[in-house]
């Protein structure tokens, strides 16, 4: 089986969110970069677990990003995965990113494509779904369990009213969330091995962006907390009802 895992570079969860150049660009100064947690903890680790069960499995990682994404992709290779592909584009248009990945996916004839459920920076949750249309493949989103026997995948996913188990025939695309796998820490052997694993850099195919970011804004800050006497919960209830009007 051949698996492609989509990896995105995102700011660390504690990064200060600020903007520069008239609020048109994210301020990257001092920001620590991480692998998008959903891509790392769930998509990548589940792919590695599948390879541990069946060592003939081949895992490729793909990221769309500039050279500054390489430490992230090396870290992903240190966790596991056989080789990585970086498509040299800094686009933040979801369609462009999906279209670039689709070209790699077509070339590589993968049986399975894993993504995280969304990235923690743009929160668009678009790539898996877009890939399914670009490649015309089945797509199961928000998966928290995944197994495969022969050509048939069994997936558990979140639905509006609970959980659903479904089956699909490979090739397919799955977006992964909590439950799929447990976070792992790369070990020394993995880190050493990652240094020599192949990392291919591709020039992007020509995609036409469908969207462009105009400006960023920060939410207004709260005016300050009103402290309520712990002995006077009637007062809190009154404020929620009469002032905030939420109950």
């Amino acid at each position: 089986m051949k698996i492609l895992v989509c990896i995105s570079k995102t700011p660390d969860t504690t990064a200060k969110i600020a903007f520069i150049e008239g609020n048109t660009k994210f301020d990257e100064s001092g920001v620590q970069w991480i692998i998008n947690p959903y891509d790392e903890w769930y998509a990548l680790v589940r792919a590695i677990e599948l390879k541990e069960k069946d060592p003939s499995t081949i895992i490729h990682l793909v990221t769309v990003g500039g050279v500054e994404a390489e430490p992230i992709i090396r870290k992903a290779l240190a966790l596991g995965g056989d080789e990585a592909i970086r498509i040299d584009s800094n686009s933040n248009d979801s369609f462009t990113v999906a279209n670039e990945i689709a070209q790699v996916a077509k070339e590589g004839a993968y049986d399975l494509i894993f993504t995280g459920k969304e990235t923690i920076d743009y929160n668009s949750a678009c790539i898996g779904s877009m890939l399914s249309a670009l490649l015309d493949l089945p797509f199961v989103s928000l998966a928290d369990h995944f197994d495969v026997t022969g050509n048939t995948a069994t997936i558990k996913r979140e639905i509006e009213s609970g959980e659903e188990t479904c089956e699909a025939t490979l090739p397919m695309i799955v977006s992964c969330q909590k439950g799929m796998a447990e976070q792992r820490i790369p070990n020394m052997r993995g880190i050493m091995a990652a240094r020599t694993k192949p990392l291919k850099v591709l020039t992007p195919a020509a995609s036409t962006a469908t969207t462009s970011i105009q400006i960023f804004d920060l939410p207004p800050t709260k005016s300050g907390v009103k402290l309520i006497d712990p002995e006077n919960m009637d007062e809190l209830v009154r404020l929620l009802k009469e002032e905030a009007k939420v109950i």
Partner: peptide, 23 residues
């Protein structure tokens, strides 16, 4: 932008050649 919408809307956008904003 709920469970079903998140799953379907981006694929619809691609099939329509449309740009999309989610969230």
């Amino acid at each position: 932008h709920n469970i079903n919408g998140k799953a379907i809307a981006p694929a619809v956008a691609v099939r329509l050649g449309a740009g999309i904003v989610t969230g």
